[in-house]
Design a protein around this nucleic acid. Sequence first.
DNA 1: TTGATATATGCAATAGAGTTGCATCACTAA
DNA 2: TTAGTGATGCAACTCTATTGCATATATCAA
Lengths: 137, 137
Amino acid sequence: MKTEAENVLKLRNVRPTAMRLMVFDYLKNRKAAVTLADLENDFDHSERTTLYRTLKTFEKNRVVHQINDGSGIAKYALDLNFQDKFSAKDLHLHFHCNVCNATVCLTDQKIPHISLPEGFVAEDMNLLLKGICDNCT
Amino acid sequence: MKTEAENVLKLRNVRPTAMRLMVFDYLKNRKAAVTLADLENDFDHSERTTLYRTLKTFEKNRVVHQINDGSGIAKYALDLNFQDKFSAKDLHLHFHCNVCNATVCLTDQKIPHISLPEGFVAEDMNLLLKGICDNCT
DNA sequence: TTGATATATGCAATAGAGTTGCATCACTAA
DNA sequence: TTAGTGATGCAACTCTATTGCATATATCAA
């Protein structure tokens, strides 16, 4: 019986090394998106570069997505649509709490359709809300 | 007869120095949001730091707003609602062109209301669309 | 106008995130 | 088992953003 981490990495063509499995589980257990610095702090005996490349590999293979919450520091959160190899990109919104500084995915809130002016073609979108999260209200 | 630049800076309590007026006009004449590097390139004989602080002063006093288009480099565009001193923040969306790399404000496209889960309070929002702009289609 | 005060500018240095090169180690497949 | 590919560790570096401090400039009150 393989773990979820192993299954997902296999599905995404990412070699399930020990480090990657640990990072996957770490991401899985965190409610909020994580920065490279978070990983560095919580994986004391690991190399910064390896963690960096782990995130980049995950991102390239759609295990995680990068979130830009305006802090200027990239954050990463697990993709949640692991059903199949070619599942469509999950467009959801992100919420950044101005109090606790956490950034979370709100996968249930879908982004409404936006009509663009003539000549503009949208391929991707990011919706970021800032305010106070449920933990801080 | 004062120029628009002078009027706006006065309104926003920003001292209208020569540098600031030039930067204002520069921003006014650019369709796309500008980076600090853009300013450095186009104001050859000016100090990087002065340009940086000019942008920050403009931002603090709501002459410009910062745009984060996912490139990791901050861009700035003029606020357009200069009607009065206390005009509400103008929530509009931004479009980033993956071809020419330009980022523009689409002030006519308003952001639809988003309902959030219990406990979340929104204070601000950013909507970024990525794709191909009207110049590149 | 003049002096006192506050603000703006110029220059240098630094911080910090992100990224790359290269040597070595580990895994995979024939 | 061996060749080849990919992962990791370490060091160095790039680039944006930011701050400290000295000097210049503008503003205001007397």
